[in-house]
Design a binder for these strands. Structure first.
Lengths: 216, 216
DNA sequence: AGGATATGAGTGGCCAGACCACTTTCAAAA
DNA sequence: TTTTGAAAGTGGTCTGGCCACTCATATCCT
């Protein structure tokens, strides 16, 4: 049964270990030699599993220090994927659209939720919006969190990395107006308008990035 | 600069080699020992790179035969990431909703696509619908495929498995009517109606499963 | 001659041991 | 007290070996 692909078992074991031991992003996992012994495998085999996870950005290794569970901000994998998996426009487009799917679904979900419209969060949201150096990413992530779907949030977070940090940078004054409009529509629970305006902003942002050559 | 992470260089070298030598999916790539020699690198280090690519589904290794390039479109990225993202404590509700998100987005996408409405596929679709033992899953999968978003399709496929095979079984006569209505709305490019009816069917189906105790 | 069998080369799977380069720690020296 | 440096621990890499498996070839038996 377990004839070949032992390193795949190790990948699964490591995943289970991370769950059971409740290792959080940033935490250190046992050393290679230690893991190899407890799992009764050779160190080189164990390393094959670790390097695979590292290429995916799930772990981070630092020579002389150890191996750490990645905090999901490691984007070494973007390089690999953009040159390997995502080498055609179709795949790029898919990532972009799929991310949009989750974002618009989040807005839709928030609008459906009765309680959301009555929350005080929108005021504080606007307050931060006016503040200095408000990050574009914070705006979208906040919406994803408010949707209440943690799985969708996780998927979105991954897709965001794969699409070349689409929300890098701080918002301009023009964007603040756009965001305010979106928030107002959400408060009114007007999903159609909110989504339409969000989509407009998203596509405006994309054009802006292309104009500035901010690929990745 | 390139002090550490030699296996990453190998990953890139292999990619370049594949491009230069015009190796196509299904073709065999040089053996590990051979590659290690030409790249002036140890075999274990080379294997770390190969196993990483294998985990991503970019290559396929068969003991005693060799290593083969696989179709890059069949990359396993989503599958691997899902084992880490889809944790056991993930609420059933989130999985269910996220799957719905992708399904409704697919329908929306199809309706947006001008060409789709003029395709002949809908007739053959209906024909199969009338036939014997049409599987529920086929209906939804077909829609996902027609959306043209391969990534969304992959994610959906995983979520479907994770949410306990929600589309097991064949369609009843009542469901055929529902599906016909959905298809008609899609043909009219009436996304709102199509999605509403799909949602209605989806939730009816869920209740039906609960009634029959078809959990999982 | 033809089919079954044995053999050997080639391949990936895995392991043990050995260095190296690097970071951390902590005790000894200033 | 501060500085220094040696030791322990870690990941990075290579070597060489053995195993299990596949396949093509040669060999043997009928």
């Amino acid at each position: 049964m377990n004839q070949s692909k032992r390193y795949l078992d190790i990948v699964r074991d490591i995943r289970d270990m991370i769950r059971q031991e409740k290792i959080k992003p940033g935490d250190r996992i046992p050393s290679e030699r230690e893991l190899a012994e407890t799992m009764q495998v050779g160190r080189s085999t164990l390393r094959e599993a670790l390097r695979s996870l590292e290429l995916l950005g799930l772990i981070e290794t630092r020579r002389g220090e150890g191996t750490f569970l990645s905090d999901y901000r490691n984007h070494k994998l973007v390089e690999v994927l953009s040159t390997f998996v995502l080498q055609d426009n179709q795949s790029h487009e898919d990532v972009w659209r799929t991310r949009q799917i989750h974002e618009m679904a989040a807005i839709h979900e928030i609008c459906q939720n009765e309680a959301a419209s009555q929350m005080k969060i929108w005021d504080s949201f606007r307050l931060r919006l006016e503040g200095e150096s408000f990050q574009r990413e914070d705006f979208v992530r906040e919406l994803m969190v408010l949707s209440g779907n943690r799985l969708s949030l996780k998927i979105w977070f991954l897709l965001k990395q794969y699409s070349g940090n689409p929300y890098d940078g701080t918002v301009s004054s023009e964007e603040i107006d756009r965001m305010n409009d979106i928030l107002t529509a959400i408060e009114r629970q007007d999903a159609d308008t909110a989504i339409r305006e969000f989509k407009a902003w998203s596509e405006w942002l994309q054009k802006e990035r292309i104009r500035n050559g901010n690929y990745s």
